[in-house]
Design a protein around this nucleic acid. Sequence first.
DNA 1: GTTCACATTTGACGTTCCGTCATTTTTTGA
DNA 2: TCAAAAAATGACGGAACGTCAAATGTGAAC
Lengths: 249, 249
Amino acid sequence: MPTNSMAPLSRKQREIAERHTHFLSIARTLLHEEGFHQLSMDRVAELAEYSKGTVYQHFPCKEEMLGQLCISAMQRMLALGRRALVHQGSHRERLMAFFIAHDVFQKLEFNDVLMMQNFHTDQVLEKLSPITRQRHDELEGAIFGAVKSIVEDAMDAGDLPRQQASASDIVFGLWSLTHGAESLRSCNLPFAELGVEDTTMAVVLMLEKLLDGLGWKPMSDSCCSFEKIQELKSVLFKEELSAAQQLQP
Amino acid sequence: MPTNSMAPLSRKQREIAERHTHFLSIARTLLHEEGFHQLSMDRVAELAEYSKGTVYQHFPCKEEMLGQLCISAMQRMLALGRRALVHQGSHRERLMAFFIAHDVFQKLEFNDVLMMQNFHTDQVLEKLSPITRQRHDELEGAIFGAVKSIVEDAMDAGDLPRQQASASDIVFGLWSLTHGAESLRSCNLPFAELGVEDTTMAVVLMLEKLLDGLGWKPMSDSCCSFEKIQELKSVLFKEELSAAQQLQP
DNA sequence: GTTCACATTTGACGTTCCGTCATTTTTTGA
DNA sequence: TCAAAAAATGACGGAACGTCAAATGTGAAC
């Protein structure tokens, strides 16, 4: 009986915590197998073989559950991003690597990204519990900060001239660009008909041009950007990419 | 009795068409007064003083109604954008003017933009009737094409060098940047805490840098970009801006 | 003017989902 | 062993979407 005498509630608490993650994992499975619109509290309860009331003892509302799913997705995203941060190479390369991480993540966890987009539209954030809201904002800040640190390092190192736009402004611009592309991509518009063959490549090219415009050295030799991207991909995200190819060959 | 003898159904058809627009106008009012989440078919029927069944004879499903609202919003957006297209000035100025039109539109019709974002997440587009879907895609194409024509004109005129990225790629990049900023802005994240004081200004600056990176002449003199933007705003969208200031002084 | 076929309108109904809460079941501690 | 506290349950209320049989209106023929 390995029961801690100082915490007689510990076993129960552990059970509750386990069930909590179980519910979240069920929800995520549902998300992947049947898509966002099939994700309902009743369905989670049914699949978890608990009653709805019990589920509602873990999550005061649906938004809270979505919020926690969202947080765990952001954590996974940040974990990928951190690999870019510690990558050996120029600041500019690190930044591109961070972008690639983002892109790989969307390919890998498409449904989670879709869920996050649904989550961020409307006033869902407002219904979150303060703690979850704070954790969400902190994570958002951590991702923002990670990119900002690259930008500031580049400025300190002299790779990127200081200018009218602050480091934060630059990060906001990069964020908008990638987030916008992600959002557009996920609503199946007929890009091919509009003349855009590969949206990821288009964004990579524009990102390079934006960095060039900012005077961020080393400037892109327009010819080798693509190969460098491929190289970064295969070095940093080898196993993820093979997993992605198994999903959609 | 101005009844056309060739079309005895004409009066009835006119009535139906009128009611159709009436329903849409009610829906839009609801959207503005009470926000997206209050927009329900029951509520529209109630406010229009018709039964729900009648509403459903005009719109096979809620998505269809949203789709038509979306289309009319896109038309208004395009109307603003066309003013930028005929603006006298460099190609680059015209492009910036188009972006400003977008920005003014979001300030002016915030709730419609929010509705369009909700509309574009999830698989709503798939539930549209083929005609509406086609009209939507055409409008999307028209807006895309408007920007693309500026880009191509600039290439033809020699202001913008031809390069690895096609005109379509460039338009997609610009679209991502503005759409992403719009989307981020509408979910009330604590940008100030992250160090971004004015998201619009941040995007303008990044846009300028992106164009610089593409080698689009005349390059921005970093000092006067802001004033040029203000000038364009006041010249092209004077009345809209004063209307916006009345809304939020 | 009456009648009848056809078109239009209606709102009650079925369904799904969120969230609540009185009741029942389980656990705990004396 | 038993009573009090904690936890689980699912029936219930309410909101929203979408359906459809019945009611109402319309126009044409006689």
